[in-house]
Design a protein around this nucleic acid. Structure first.
Lengths: 114, 114
DNA sequence: ATCAATACATTGTATTTCTATGTATTTACA
DNA sequence: TGTAAATACATAGAAATACAATGTATTGAT
């Protein structure tokens, strides 16, 4: 894991973006997906993820439906229309910020296309 | 200016990196340089920058020397050896984090080489 | 049977940057 | 010459965020 502070400000964008891509996901699944996609470098903690999901829900950007797998509950979260709009805005902002940072700090570095 | 939260975790890296590039700078100069290099998109506030400089100094990563321009004082900050080391570490961390984010969220986007 | 993994949750803490406010000097220009 | 804008520093308090620690409970593997 990197310097923890770096994640600040990007967590909700990551969540919104993944839900936009994948349709619906539950918390644990989201954390696993981020872990996998980041090559184990971004490890979302429960204490970050669940409060973030609750806040996004409270703000009307997410909804969820419960599914029971035996006795265990899963809350599948998905974007509301407002969430879809927000996802686009935040993605653009983050992309622009990253472009700016790259040009300021790493003008010669070539971020790999994988 | 972007979402304010995005800057979190990157401010000290920006300061260290610019000082590594430029040798020595004073606070106001740093803020202007960031404003210029970011095309007016990153506007460091006094309330962010000066406390950050004080903290980096307290932590032994920066030193400063005062210069008087008439009666007005300027504090020229520069990296200590520890600061130089830290700059390298933080730059690498930030670069790696940005690579990861890019691959996760914007795999098809081509961050321009300018 | 037991341990690891799955799946949810909350409280309190630490850190960070910003807002607001302040002092004072220098420069531009009307 | 007077005034506004820019220069240059500073601090106190507020707001936001992610984390650490802790908790409950179920399921799957051995």
């Amino acid at each position: 894991m990197y310097n923890k502070e770096l994640l600040k400000g990007t967590l909700t964008t990551i969540v919104l973006k993944l839900l936009a891509k994948e349709g619906k996901m539950y918390g644990y699944e989201l954390a696993q997906k981020v872990k996998e996609m980041s090559d184990e470098k971004i490890l979302l903690k429960d204490g970050s993820l669940y409060p973030a999901l609750h806040k996004l829900t409270k703000d009307g950007l997410l909804q969820f439906e419960e599914q029971y797998i035996g006795k265990r509950v899963r809350k599948y979260y998905y974007l509301t229309p407002a969430g879809t709009e927000r996802e686009q805005v935040e993605s653009e902002q983050l992309k622009a910020f990253m472009s700016t940072l790259k040009n300021m700090l790493f003008p010669d570095f070539n971020f790999q296309l994988q």
